[in-house]
């Protein structure tokens, strides 16, 4: 024990002051350059939503083909249709003739060349009786949707019902644009109207489209 103590030299200062040579720091700078590149490639741009530890994930985002305006419009329309319209007109668009809900599929009101009339119906509602696809619906009382929906929403949902290939070949009309909707809704007759349309009034207001 005593031997241990005597042998041990606790030096007050450390003589060797040698430190890393300058090239070590050059190497560290190079490593820093590598690190920045590595983080660029694997760090996902410090984005909270990128999880893949490979460069691929960021590339993937740029690779995904942008959705066309048409697809966006139809998808938006489908969402609105499911949320609002499908309750009466059913998801398949066939309506429910027993309960007095007319179909949209192959309906002459929907598939009119000009969308003005159907824009007016969605905006202000419709009061029966009305003839759809050869059948007369007396109890129709469609509420006005114009307050809750923007021009774009109405355009999208109308595009969806007029251009839904699944509903039949006739449903292949061009997209309804928000401008078209705005034009109809800005019309005094519609903007000031507080009651629902009747079929006759519609035919009168938008005669050219029959």
């Amino acid at each position: 024990m005593a031997a241990k103590q005597n042998n041990e030299k606790i030096e007050a200062t450390d003589a060797g002051v040698g430190g890393p040579k300058p090239w070590v720091f050059v190497l560290m700078v190079l490593t820093l350059y590598w690190a920045i590149n590595y983080l660029d490639g694997h760090g996902g741009g410090f984005n909270a939503k990128v999880y893949a530890p490979h460069k691929d994930a960021t590339v993937v985002a740029s690779l995904k083909v942008q959705k066309t305006p048409e697809e966006q419009a139809l998808e938006g329309g489908a969402r609105i249709y499911r949320g609002i319209c499908a309750a009466c007109h059913q998801p398949n668009g066939l309506g429910n003739s027993n309960a007095g809900f007319p179909p949209l599929v192959n309906s002459e009101w929907v598939l009119n060349a000009s969308p003005d009339r159907i824009i007016a119906i969605v905006s202000n509602g419709l009061q029966g009786p009305v003839e759809v696809a050869g059948q007369i619906y007396n109890k129709v009382a469609m509420p006005a949707q114009g307050v809750a929906l923007s021009d774009e929403d109405i355009a999208n949902v109308l595009s969806y019902i007029r251009r839904n290939i699944d509903w039949g070949d006739a449903h292949n009309l061009p997209l309804v644009t928000p401008e078209q909707v705005k034009a109809v809704r800005d019309n005094d007759a519609i903007a000031t109207r507080s009651t629902a349309w009747t079929a006759d009034e519609l035919k009168q207001q938008f005669p050219d489209s029959q």
Partner: peptide
């Protein structure tokens, strides 16, 4: 301390 030598390369230790 045990080998009875001085610590070499204090700069390395600091680094």
């Amino acid at each position: 301390a045990l080998s009875g030598r001085q610590l070499m390369g204090r700069g390395y230790a600091q680094f």
